[in-house]
Amino acid sequence: MARFDRYFLYQLTVLFGFFSLVLVSVYWINRAVILFDQLLADGQSAGVFLTLTLYTLPNVIRMVLPISAFVAAVYVTNRLTTESELVVAQATGMSPWRMARPVFLFGLLVCVLMMVLVHFLVPMSRTQLAERSEEIEANVAARMLTEGQFLHPAKGITFYIREITREGELNDVFLADARADTTRTDYMATRAYLVQEGGAPKLVMVDGSAQTYQREDGRLLVTTFDSFTYDVGALMENSGRTRTDVREYDTLTLFSPDQAALDATRRDPSNFYYEGHLRIAQPLNPLIAALIGFSALMVGSFSRFGVWKQIGVAVVLIIVLQAIENGTADVARSDASLWPLIYLPTILGLVIVATLLWLAGRPALFKRVPRANASDVAPGTAGVAT
């Protein structure tokens, strides 16, 4: 018995690691490509790109773990069934509940990993990612020092540099400021320099002109200058995030948010309570997914054509549970008093697993009763009145 458990658990763990690696790579690369385009447009280095993508990795793993656990359980159970290993185990007297023990242990291991992610690693990575992104957004110099491209470091601002010399001189600079509702000012200069003054960046433009267009009366005012200083620090005030994400806080704060957290997030306490209960329910998802994948394939009698029908049932059950989870999440997020709805998909999942294992222990329910043929009638009974 113990050898069977170790063998089954080993197969599940190996396949789980393989599918997790594949799925994490797919999700991570997909997000990394989008992030790479954004950072490349802002003129960031490869080191910044690598740092930000590493911060997104814990959340990607969190999303992938339930899927990997389900796929691993289905794949291993299907293979052991087609190779008649589970049939031999049943022939020795092992019930479906007994054979589900290694799957249960496997699900608990993934649950522990999921708990570490949702309670510690994911909130920490979200905080670090938000802070690092805010630093990058506030670094106007890095976003503006890109030649040959029209950049938008802030809303209503358009900036263009034809060439940047090795000495840091900006040649042929164009800056359009359309943040005001009544006016628009375009600055053009043959040379410019980005300097630090009083801890804030300043753009010093040399030998240029400023064209101010007044939208109300349609007048255009042109001013030429030998040198002009533009306050780039004003762009830094408009950049950055305006509020903190609720998902960045630790679990204890989610269940007892103080006024500072409410002000920083500008959210109601119901949003904190929802996220806190969600972190308790989420670690159980891999366990439910793995048990459904196993128990669904155990229902029915052995068939040489495989268990494709059972695999389809397992996939449908997972999709239905996910749809229920999405629906209950929207309701619980809007009303704090309905937080028990978050645990409804988990309870339904356990009920489904128990029902499937109960059906798997009664294969006679799925066997067809053969019909009696005329040749099976006992001799001498023909013509007897009924």
Rank of each mutant, 00 (worst) to 15 (best):
Y273I: 01
L297Y: 04
S301Y: 10
S334D: 12
R368D: 10
G380I: 10
R279G: 01
G300K: 02
A281Y: 05
A323L: 13
I347T: 13
L287W: 03
T346V: 14
R368S: 11
P340N: 00
N285Y: 01
S295D: 04
T355Q: 04
A289Q: 07
I319G: 11
F294I: 08
V315N: 03
P286A: 09
T346C: 10
D268W: 00
D335P: 00
I288A: 14
L348H: 02
T355G: 12
S270N: 11
A354G: 08
T355L: 08
G349D: 08
A323Q: 10
A289L: 08
I288G: 10
A364I: 11
V331N: 01
S375W: 15
V369I: 14
V369N: 10
W308V: 04
F302Y: 13
S337I: 00
V313P: 05
A364P: 06
G300R: 05
S334R: 11
A289R: 02
A289V: 09
A354F: 05
W358F: 11
I288W: 01
A378W: 15
I347D: 07
I318G: 03
S301T: 14
L357W: 04
D330V: 06
R279T: 02
I311C: 03
L348E: 05
W358A: 14
A332S: 15
N285A: 15
I352F: 01
W308L: 07
I292F: 03
L357I: 01
W339F: 14
L350S: 09
I292A: 05
D268C: 01
G276I: 07
S337D: 11
A374G: 04
S375K: 09
L278Q: 12
A290M: 02
Y343P: 00
G361C: 07
P379I: 13
N373W: 15
A281H: 07
R368L: 11
A332Y: 15
A332N: 09
T355M: 07
F305Y: 03
L321F: 06
M298L: 11
A354D: 03
R362K: 01
V369Y: 12
A296T: 06
A329K: 05
W358P: 02
P379Q: 10
T346W: 00
S334Q: 12
R371P: 00
V313F: 15
L338R: 12
L284D: 04
P345M: 11
L356Y: 00
D268A: 13
G327S: 01
V320N: 05
L287V: 08
D268G: 14
I318H: 03
V313Q: 10
Q310P: 01
R304S: 15
R304N: 14
R333L: 12
A354E: 05
Y273L: 08
K367C: 05
I319C: 11
P286Q: 12
P379E: 14
T346E: 09
L291T: 08
L317Q: 13
I311G: 02
L291S: 06
P269H: 03
V353L: 08
A378Q: 13
R362F: 00
Y273S: 03
A354H: 03
F366K: 05
F272A: 15
R368C: 02
D268L: 07
P340I: 00
F294S: 07
I288M: 13
S295Q: 07
A336F: 01
S375E: 14
R371L: 12
L344E: 02
G312N: 06
G327R: 00
L350N: 06
I352V: 14
R304C: 11
A360S: 09
